[in-house]
Design a protein around this nucleic acid. Structure first.
Lengths: 131, 131
DNA sequence: AAAGGTGTATTTGTCAAGTAATACACCGTA
DNA sequence: TACGGTGTATTACTTGACAAATACACCTTT
């Protein structure tokens, strides 16, 4: 379910964060579901439990996950409306550089939008391919 | 013309590469123009000449710049098509984070694209307003 | 040839990121 | 309370990236 590439240059704990985030966003993990225990997952991937714990910690900071002392970590229950606003805000933040860049590079809105759509499509295709 | 933030987390030499590349892509530096000398620029920014040289080296590997022993470095001559390609490449780089973010946040392609278009429109409006 | 400019190969030092080891605290259930 | 499960605070180690120091080679002009 989770796959790590230790030679990708991307730190392991970051890969974990990304993948869990994606599992949640795509609905494969729902609110209330337990994440794999740090020991289970670390053993399965040949890592140290602390590495997994670090990743889980970051996920908690983002509020996508909930920690309870002594108990498994669960996916945070997400009230749709509240979360939607925050997510759009995050997306706007990520789009900021692209927006100013588009202008400074003298690229037309149509062209830029087309490019964005294309990139999104490409990535979706990759994900399909993984299954 | 070039601004460095030593506390941004992004290594200085990388900031240099990005900014020069952008200056070229946006046409503020044209083919044949000389880059600021390593000593001049490094002094101006409070860096070591080698740091600047490292950045220039990467730019040469990408073919956007030309080195000649003992002489200033110049911007490589480029065809219109190549320049267009480079600009799109820049844009793709800026869009990268937004693309992965869209997926991890579970936002639909349509929604993300709409948001992007909106932001672009907003900015255009601001520019009008500035005049 | 000398001077003052260009860039850089090589070496060195520093420092933070990433990961792992260790040991501990909490929880639920028998 | 004892056990086997959960997560983690703290510490330590390793490694690579980054940046600077040093010294050198090349070019043009005088």
């Amino acid at each position: 379910m989770i796959v790590i590439d230790p030679n990708s240059g991307v730190p392991v704990y970051r890969q974990l964060v990304e993948q869990v985030r994606f599992l949640i966003a795509s609905g494969r993990l729902a609110g209330g579901d337990e994440l794999p225990s740090t020991r289970t997952l670390s053993e399965q991937l040949g890592l140290n439990p602390m590495t997994v714990s670090k990743a889980y910690g970051l996920l908690e900071q983002d509020g996508v996950v909930q920690r309870r002392p002594g108990l498994p970590i669960i996916v945070a229950a997400t009230t749709r409306e509240a979360a939607d606003g925050a997510r759009l805000e995050q997306l706007r933040g990520l789009l900021g550089p692209a927006v100013t860049g588009t202008r400074q590079l003298g690229i037309s809105t149509t062209r830029a939008v087309a490019e964005f759509r294309q990139l999104l499509a490409d990535q979706t295709a990759e994900e399909e391919h993984d299954r």
